[in-house]
Every structure is written in C-alpha cells, then in structure tokens.
Amino acid sequence: MRTLILQTASKYLLPLLLLFSIFILLRGHYLPGGGFVGGLIASIAFILHAFANGLPQTRNLMRIHPGFLMPVGLGLSFLSGLFPMFLNRPFMTGIWFAEKVAVIGSIGTALFFDIGVYLVVIGASLTIIFTISESN
C-alpha cells in the first residue's frame, strides 16, 4: 500500500486526524463524541500512517511504545476519580473550575477522566494492531 499519494496524504492526514480526535474528545461532554470515539479515531490516524509509511516510521514518529499509554491513561482516570477524596468528597465526585472555556465548556475532573479513557483506547488498540502486524 505504499503509494506516493497515500504517503503524501498521510503526512497531512495524521496531524489533521489527531486534531480532529482531540476535538471529538473535548466536545464529548456536550455533543456526540468523547474519549472512546476520540481514542479510536486517533488510533486509526496512526494506523493509516503506518500503512502508508511502514510501521517503523510510525514507531519512530511516536517515540514511545503505544502500550505505555495504557498505564498513563488508567492512572489519569483513576486519579481524577481519586482527586475528590483529597477534598473529603466521595470517590468520583465531579469537581469543576468556575470559568468556562470555549469548546470544552467547564473544565473538571470528568474531562481528565475522559482524557484517560482516550489514552487507554489509543494505547490498547495500537498495541493490538501493531503487535499483530509486526508478528507477520
């Protein structure tokens, strides 16, 4: 599948798709989207890049093994659930900043939770796909 067109296109598609995935992630609290879908879109972006340029290239680009995203994401989600407990609230109580931000709306623990989900989904799906294609 290493056609020139796809290679060229993927160069621009990767950042675009990643940006789009982050957009989907952030708007998830108000409109369709969220961590799951965002994460899946991001991993598709990387897989597309890998198809066009070969896996080693994508690996280089990512620098770290995608598997590391899983513990990071799990930890982030867990901590954002744990955070309210430091303020003497029950586990998973939502806590927000007062000011609103464009697109994202209120920034709160739920957002960090969703970012954690996003990272885990990217990590898991890329680990699966990369491992399988490397073993061929």
């Binding site: 799951f36 899946l40 989904v121 898991a124 799906s125 699966i128 491992t131 399988i132």
Partner: peptide, 17 residues
C-alpha cells in the same frame, strides 16, 4: 452498548491472536 462495542473489539483481537 458503547462500552460493549469497544470491549468486544479487545475480545475479538485477543481471540484472533
């Protein structure tokens, strides 16, 4: 269903491997 879809992907991948 949303989580079921995502998890079933993990399951399929594992089963295939």
């Amino acid at each position: 269903i949303l989580t079921a879809i995502v998890i079933s992907f993990g399951l399929q991948a594992f089963a295939i491997v």
